[in-house]
C-alpha cells in the first residue's frame, strides 16, 4: 500500500511544526553564541544531556520504570565506538551502530530476567544503578585505569575527528531531534498506549491483553539503542576512553531531569535537561571555584521545589503556557 510508510513517518501538524521550530532554534544557537569556542562546547554538553534524557523518557517517562542506567548504555556505545576506531580504524559512522547493538544486547540480558521476576520501582532503580557500577568494574578489569586516546585521523568527516566543536554540536542536536521524533512516534502508536497503561497499572494492563514483560523490554531496548548512539557521538567529541565513562551519577542525573520535566512529557524532559544542565555549568563557572560541588546542592533543591510546587513537573507549566497561547 503506498502512503502507509509516509503515514508511519508523519507527525500531526502541531507536532511537526514544534519539531521544525526546535530544529531551527537549535541550528541558530552557535550563531547566537558567536561561534565562541567555550560556549559552543557548553551548548554541546547541553545537547548531550538533553538527548540522553529524551532517550530515558521512553523507559522512564512512558513505561514508568525508574531506570538509572542511562550512563551504562551511553558508555557502552562510547567505548565500543571508541575502541573500534582507536584499535581498528573503523569509522564511528559504523561503530556507533555496533555500539548501540551491544547496548541493546546488554539491555536484553539485564531486562529479560528483571521483568521476568517482576522487579519494579525502588528495586528496579537499585538494580539499574548497580548495573552502571558493574559495567564500570568490568571495563576496569579489562583496561584498568589506563586511558585510551583517539588520535586525530583524516579525513575528519569519516573518523569524526573534527577540531571545531560546532560539528559535534550539530551532530548531537540532530540526534536530539531524531530522539524526540522517535518519542512522539511511540507516544501515538500502539506501543505508546501500551506503555502508558503499564505505567499506570500493570495488572489492569495485563488483564487487557498487554504482555507487560515484552513491552517493557521493547521500551528498554529502544532506550538503550538511542543512548548507545548518543555515546558513540560523544566519544568522538572527547576522544578519551576510560572507565570513568560508566558514571553512576550521570545515570541518576538523567532520571532526575526526566522526573523534573514531568514524567512522560518529552517537551518537559528536554526543557528540564536544557535548564538544569545550563544552570549546572553556570554555577560551576560562577561559584564552583569558591564552593566546590555547589551545583549538586542546586540539583537537590530544584528537585525538592518541583516536588512540592509542581508535582507534575515542567510539563504542567508547558501545558499551561500552551493553553494560554491558544486561548488568545
Amino acid at each position: 500500500m503506498p502512503g502507509t510508510l509516509s503515514k508511519k513517518l508523519a507527525l500531526t501538524k502541531e507536532r511537526l511544526y514544534s519539531l521544525v521550530g526546535l530544529a531551527i532554534v537549535l541550528a541558530l544557537v552557535p550563531v547566537f553564541l558567536g561561534f565562541n569556542f567555550y560556549y559552543v562546547l557548553l551548548a554541546t554538553n547541553v545537547m548531550l544531556a538533553a538527548s540522553l534524557v529524551a532517550a530515558w523518557n521512553i523507559i522512564g517517562g512512558y513505561a514508568g520504570q525508574l531506570d538509572l542506567a542511562a550512563s551504562a548504555y551511553m558508555a557502552l556505545g562510547a567505548v565500543i565506538t571508541g575502541h573500534l576506531l582507536a584499535s581498528f580504524g573503523l569509522t564511528p559512522w559504523i561503530g556507533m551502530f555496533i555500539g548501540a547493538a551491544v547496548a541493546v544486547g546488554v539491555a536484553v540480558l539485564v531486562g529479560y530476567p528483571t521483568f521476568r521476576f517482576g522487579i519494579k520501582e525502588v528495586w528496579y532503580a537499585l538494580l539499574t544503578s548497580a548495573l552502571v557500577v558493574i559495567m564500570m568494574r568490568i571495563y576496569y578489569l579489562i583496561y584498568g585505569s589506563f586511558e585510551t586516546y583517539i588520535p586525530h585521523m583524516e579525513p575528519e568527516w569519516l573518523y569524526l575527528t573534527f577540531r571545531r566543536y560546532e560539528v559535534y554540536y550539530y551532530m548531537l542536536a540532530t540526534m536530539l531531534v531524531i530522539i524526540i521524533w522517535v518519542n512522539l512516534k511511540i507516544k501515538d502508536s500502539k506501543l505508546g498506549y501500551y506503555l502508558a497503561a503499564i505505567r499506570e497499572d500493570e495488572l489492569a494492563a495485563e488483564a487487557l491483553g498487554i504482555d507487560v514483560r515484552r513491552y517493557k523490554l521493547y521500551a528498554l531496548m529502544i532506550y538503550a539503542a538511542l543512548a548507545g548512539l548518543v555515546g558513540g557521538i560523544y566519544i568522538t567529541l572527547t576522544g578519551i576512553l576510560s572507565f570513568r565513562l560508566f558514571d553512576p551519577w550521570l545515570g541518576i542525573v538523567t532520571a532526575v531531569m526526566g522526573i523534573v520535566g514531568g514524567l512522560g512529557s518529552i517537551g518537559g524532559a528536554v526543557l528540564a535537561a536544557v535548564i538544569l544542565r545550563s544552570l549546572e555549568e553556570y554555577l560551576r563557572g560562577a561559584i564552583g571555584a569558591t564552593y566546590p560541588g555547589s551545583h549538586l546542592l542546586v540539583y537537590g533543591l530544584i528537585l525538592i521545589l518541583v516536588g512540592v510546587l509542581k508535582p507534575e513537573g515542567l510539563a504542567s507549566l508547558l501545558d499551561y503556557l500552551k493553553k494560554k497561547i491558544i486561548r488568545r
Binding site: K190, Y194, A196, A197, R199, L208, I210
Partner: peptide
C-alpha cells in the same frame, strides 16, 4: 477500581481495543 489515572477515558478504552 484500577484506573489509568493519567490517561483520558477515551485513551483507556482505546488500550482495550488495541488487543
Amino acid at each position: 477500581v484500577r484506573p489509568f489515572k493519567k490517561l483520558t477515558v477515551l485513551e483507556a478504552v482505546t488500550v482495550g481495543a488495541l488487543l
